[in-house]
Nucleic acid binder design. Structure first.
Lengths: 122, 122
DNA sequence: AACAACAGTAGAGTGTAGTCTATAGTTGGT
DNA sequence: ACCAACTATAGACTACACTCTACTGTTGTT
């Protein structure tokens, strides 16, 4: 599929997809049999990757971290050992975030109690 | 205390503290009895606030969201009802983040299994 | 009096992650 | 043949959250 279809499938603008492509997260292929243009073609794997990128972004991973994960997942840039190391690193980071968020929930719940119990009467 | 001491207590640079002050998150007081300078003076509450800001940043709240929370906590800018609304909103956001992170943990654990089970032999 | 270390303000610069503009070429439908 | 809608590239622009620079004034120690 071309970028327009990919854009519709993923909800990301062609601009943003090209930005991710330039950042090395996804990669279209050129059809060498077609000589009149040099359009990029994308496969279903790219759709998956872009969906993953969206999810990974919202948990706070940066583009370069997402790049690492994608490389550890789809590519052969890293050895098996390196891949596991990268993925473990990300799991630890997520575990830390999880704890921080739970702490923050407690804290804000406490603020709420303070407001309710009328420590200040507004 | 002056900004230097505050900086040491919180681990934030005077630059960053001034940035937060300009953003409305904290507020120093000027000592009108001193006429030779116009240095800002900060209290322990500001130390608390800055520590909160650090924690809130790492769970992904923006400066303006943190501002809202601080206003709902310390100030009388909002009514009791508004305060509870803001805090509930933040709790919902944290709950959402929590779920997303748990999902991402599952996903990355799955990637790990894929690597281990040797779907690709590197 | 000299000087480092501090204080303040204004504004420029950085990095991240887009988002948009300009330009130029291609494709598909009428 | 024409035109809208698509494609590509390069580079400008934006927003956020700092971070730093330049400049000036103050304080405390020697």
């Amino acid at each position: 599929m071309l970028i327009h279809e990919l854009s519709i499938k993923t909800g990301l603008s062609p601009h943003t997809i090209r930005f991710y492509e330039k950042s090395g997260l996804v990669k279209g292929k050129r059809d060498i049999t077609v000589k009149s243009n040099n359009y990029f073609h994308y496969d279903e794997e790219t759709v998956e990757k872009l969906e993953f990128i969206n999810d990974a972004k919202s948990v706070g991973f940066t583009i370069s971290e997402i790049g690492q994960i994608i490389d550890a997942w789809y590519n052969n840039k890293y050895s098996k050992k390196e891949k596991l190391h990268i993925l473990d690193e990300k799991l630890v980071a997520l575990e830390t975030k999880l704890k921080e968020i739970k702490e923050m929930k407690k804290l804000i719940s406490q603020f709420k109690q303070d407001v309710i119990s009328g420590q200040c009467p507004y």
